[in-house]
Deep mutational scan, measured.
Amino acid sequence: MTFKLIINGKTLKGETTTEAVDAATAEKVFKQYFNDNGIDGEWTYDDATKTFTITE
Rank of each mutant, 00 (worst) to 15 (best):
46 D>K: 02
16 T>G: 06
42 E>F: 10
10 K>Q: 13
10 K>T: 14
5 L>D: 01
34 F>R: 07
1 M>L: 13
39 I>A: 05
43 W>A: 02
41 G>C: 07
30 F>K: 00
2 T>P: 07
24 A>V: 10
37 N>F: 15
26 A>R: 01
45 Y>R: 00
48 A>N: 08
12 L>P: 03
50 K>S: 05
51 T>Y: 01
55 T>A: 05
44 T>F: 10
7 I>G: 02
30 F>M: 03
28 K>P: 02
6 I>L: 05
8 N>R: 12
38 G>Y: 12
13 K>P: 07
22 D>G: 01
51 T>Q: 03
7 I>F: 14
28 K>G: 08
23 A>F: 09
2 T>R: 06
12 L>N: 10
37 N>R: 13
27 E>K: 07
39 I>K: 04
38 G>W: 14
6 I>E: 03
9 G>I: 15
4 K>E: 03
37 N>M: 15
1 M>Q: 13
27 E>F: 15
8 N>A: 06
26 A>F: 02
18 T>R: 04
43 W>V: 08
36 D>C: 07
6 I>A: 03
47 D>W: 05
26 A>I: 03
5 L>F: 09
53 T>C: 06
19 E>P: 03
11 T>H: 13
10 K>S: 12
39 I>C: 09
47 D>E: 10
24 A>M: 10
4 K>W: 08
22 D>H: 02
10 K>H: 14
34 F>M: 15
30 F>I: 04
24 A>F: 10
49 T>M: 06
39 I>L: 13
22 D>V: 01
10 K>G: 10
26 A>T: 00
53 T>D: 01
2 T>A: 04
45 Y>A: 00
11 T>Y: 15
20 A>H: 02
36 D>Q: 11
39 I>Q: 04
33 Y>Q: 07
56 E>L: 13
48 A>L: 09
13 K>F: 10
37 N>A: 14
12 L>A: 08
38 G>S: 11
23 A>I: 06
36 D>I: 10
54 I>S: 03
27 E>G: 05
36 D>H: 09
20 A>Q: 07
23 A>E: 06
18 T>C: 10
24 A>D: 09
26 A>W: 01
34 F>T: 15
21 V>M: 12
44 T>E: 09
37 N>S: 14
46 D>T: 03
1 M>D: 10
19 E>Y: 13
15 E>G: 03
36 D>W: 07
46 D>W: 02
8 N>F: 09
5 L>C: 14
33 Y>I: 07
56 E>V: 14
46 D>L: 02
54 I>Y: 13
1 M>Y: 14
7 I>A: 03
17 T>N: 05
34 F>Q: 15
9 G>N: 07
4 K>S: 05
24 A>K: 11
45 Y>F: 05
23 A>L: 06
39 I>D: 04
47 D>N: 08
19 E>V: 15
47 D>Y: 05
28 K>T: 08
45 Y>T: 00
7 I>N: 02
47 D>C: 05
35 N>Y: 13
35 N>T: 14
38 G>L: 11
11 T>R: 03
12 L>K: 05
8 N>S: 07
54 I>Q: 02
3 F>P: 00
39 I>M: 11
40 D>V: 15
13 K>A: 09
16 T>C: 14
7 I>D: 01
15 E>P: 06
48 A>I: 10
1 M>E: 10
26 A>G: 01
6 I>V: 11
32 Q>T: 11
53 T>F: 07
49 T>K: 05
